[in-house]
Amino acid sequence: MQLARVIGTVVATVKSPGLEGIKFLIIQPLDRQQRPSGGQLVAADAIHMAGPGELVYFVAAREAAQALPDTFVPVDHAIVGIVDAVATLSGDEQ
């Protein structure tokens, strides 16, 4: 799992069966210092509560679909939590 910032939303009306009602967000993965790191991704919102601007953590690969109600869906990134705080050895970072 890694940290990411939600930067946008994706709306799709025609979707693969099983994805109805699932919100898709655009996320920017972050490094440990919360700087952008790597390309932006579309991730399913498994917690239904994330929104643009929020710091979240996401899971990749097969485990992403496991976070959704229907686990046999074509999803490879899913947001699984909203970050309240990141506490590090060098001090709080959020």
Binding site: R32, A67, G81, V83, V86, T88
Partner: peptide, 23 residues
Amino acid sequence: VVGTVVSTINSPAFDDRTLLLCD
């Protein structure tokens, strides 16, 4: 281990689990 990630809104599987930030 360089820190922890604290989260209250999360997938139920993460309830009562400690998330560690690891380099």
